[in-house]
Design a protein around this nucleic acid. Structure first.
Lengths: 225, 225, 225, 225
DNA sequence: TTGTAATCGAGACGGTACGTCATGTCTTGCG
DNA sequence: CGCAAGACATGACGTACCGTCTCGATTACAA
């Protein structure tokens, strides 16, 4: 797998030393000249800017290169496709803020924690800096298995596991039905938000997050009195 | 809006006579020669075949034309994009079977009806004839607003309304909490399936459908005894 | 051989109907749409203009296409390289004037005929419309065997044979030594001019042509008295 | 003029000390490290090998560097183009053998001397070590005026002058018509060979050399009896 | 029965973007 | 400092498709 070259969700401070190898091979000697950090950041920033400005279908590798003041080959040397650039760029958005795998809050109050987490998801999905690249990635992975695997490994599975961890903790605490399938539960809660986001079929607000969590916990049936 | 030229979900038997007007204008005289039904069906069939064989990104208008034994212009005359062809082709899959807007069963047993409906959705999502074109459409609409509107009008909104209708009926019958938001409820149930389908993050089986409906109705909290 | 698509030195008047087949093959049906004569002429004219303006090394297929108001693919469809375009363009220069294989004058006066022919060669070599493309071709064929064969067949061999024909006629008339090698003779006469042209090592004038022919006929040795 | 950095046709044995200055300027300090003779010879040898193996158009500076085990910059530091490398390499071929400007033999027998000289030229033109680089140079100078001047100064003019010297000597000895133009004479003799070489239009053999010289001296007209 | 006009299969056209390759410069340690 | 290594910015390459346009041939009403 050689899709993305940034360090995947590391906790190290010095990202600048975590490069992968070039996508295209050259004759090997004692490596001397190194990858340009300036170029890498300019490319990621340009990709984010452009996907917001012109959309994914109008996003061109040439355009990224031009905006970044970089040669096209410098992009193709390190990424196999514009989708891979975008994945790195998307993760790079959070690079400074979080330096480790995500985790849901665990205050002991399940409803509050889930609500906070889903509100966070909703906020990210509607963040104008994150919506366009994420939407682009969502469609790109549908047709690029390698990118899909990379996206799953670096974005999807970590999020999914964080959710399951929190739900398992709640189940242990007796706050969840002992026979509940945690994956089904998570798919219902986050799937509701994801569906609205993908289909743009309804408002995606904090209120919506609250309702989903409350409904998922209590169920749709009328409360017995 | 002139995206798709097949008849949209009409109840008339003779679909072959419901053409719209050509997408490209020609000088108008007393209409004489008519659209070729043979060509239309060959195009739709070729589009379906090819999207399954080579995927959406490798689907070319030229390829559809060649496979259908048709000139490229015959496609561009009647559809504005390969996405629009695919939408017609996808709907054409169901043409013989259903000749009207979809409706969920309403036997009075809410859980049974929802389970049947979600099982049906799951079956369609995993049908090898439907999965590739639907996946293609799902990504195509992300970048083509006209196609998105057409898809919403002809696929999404009808389904969504059928679900809401059934839930409203249940709410009237006192089988649902009176304050439940029906859109939220539907998004939870169908969003769970849609998420698994999009993210390929888990098995998409009848069992899964059963679990989702049961969990949505009863909630995640432990049942009081 | 599919290098050049104009008719090679035909005597037919209607050159516009002598196209060859496209360089890239497509599936064959009953041919309908035809090659654009307008595009062909624009390309040849643009190639000639540009090679004079910017030189062969700076001649780009993109540049020809742009100058001709033509898509790049329209060039690649009909010619395999810029050298092949240039060969056609060079021959197209003479298209109206000569419609058959070249022939040297044969008035019976060998010295006068050779002098006229060599003056003609010298005039062409120094013609500012012909010098740049011919120089370009001369270097291009050094590294492109297919182009070289085409050039030999359409330019070089016809000229060479015309010269040999005239010399043979003279030999029959007793104006040439019976044991003279006609190829050696022609190489001496035209080689002298070609060398000056290639090496730019001396003036290339009608006078020079006169001297060469006179010297070749009489020899370098002092005339016995 | 900074085209070539080897010593031009010197008679000194120790070529290794005749370097010019680097083509690219660097900040000047007290010169310490000197040009590597090993690198220079490896580059010239690699250039010769490669131009024979892959041809001039496929000859890359990177390829020369790789074959020579040298950094690309080491080539660009000392030569302005691959043509300049090739010119040095071509001259370096003769470095050991001749250490001065070329001269034609002058035994007093003009025909024998010219024949020997032209046979020598023919032998060099057909030498598989010399043909490819020389052909490359011949085309390279057509588009690179600086290289052309250097080639003229170091290869062409010396040869041309040697020929004229020999012919002048013959003219003084009364073996040549007093009014013969020596440049025209030389162009006829060597032009015949050069033309065959460039156009590959006939055998280039010692026999051919003999015929050319004999014909040039005696002329084409039938010998009077 | 014959016009007449739109559609048909076919494919060349003017273009845009692709991903690769080559160029010549710049940067990084090593000797 | 010169050197080997190689990343860099630039830009041309030839290919693949795009969506439009132009050909005859075919087709089906209207006169």
């Amino acid at each position: 797998m050689q899709l993305c070259c940034s360090a995947p969700l590391l906790s190290r401070r010095t990202v600048s030393s975590c490069y992968g190898d070039p996508v295209v091979q050259t004759r090997n000697g004692p490596a001397t000249a190194r990858r340009s950090e300036r170029a890498r950041q300019a490319i990621l920033a340009a990709a984010l800017d452009l996907v917001c400005e012109v959309g994914y279908t109008n996003l061109r590798v040439e355009g990224i290169a031009a905006r970044a003041g970089v040669g096209k080959q410098t992009i193709y040397r390190w990424w196999p496709s514009k989708g891979a650039v975008l994945l790195d760029a998307f993760l790079w958005l959070d690079d400074p803020h979080q330096a480790g795998p995500p985790a849901l809050p665990d205050t002991g109050d399940l409803e509050a924690d889930l609500t906070a987490a889903l509100r966070q998801t909703v906020a990210e999905l509607t963040d104008p800096r994150r919506d366009p690249p994420l939407r682009a990635l969502t469609t790109a992975i549908a047709h690029d298995p390698e990118l899909a695997e990379s996206y799953a490994a670096r974005v999807e599975r970590p999020a999914r596991e964080a959710r399951r961890d929190r739900l398992r903790s709640a189940q242990r605490a007796g706050q969840l039905a002992p026979d509940a399938d945690l994956d089904v539960a998570a798919d219902m809660v986050w799937g509701a938000a994801l569906t609205r986001w993908i289909e743009r079929s309804g408002p995606l607000t904090p209120d919506f997050a609250d309702q989903v969590v409350q409904t998922a916990l209590s169920g749709l049936r009328p409360r017995p009195r």
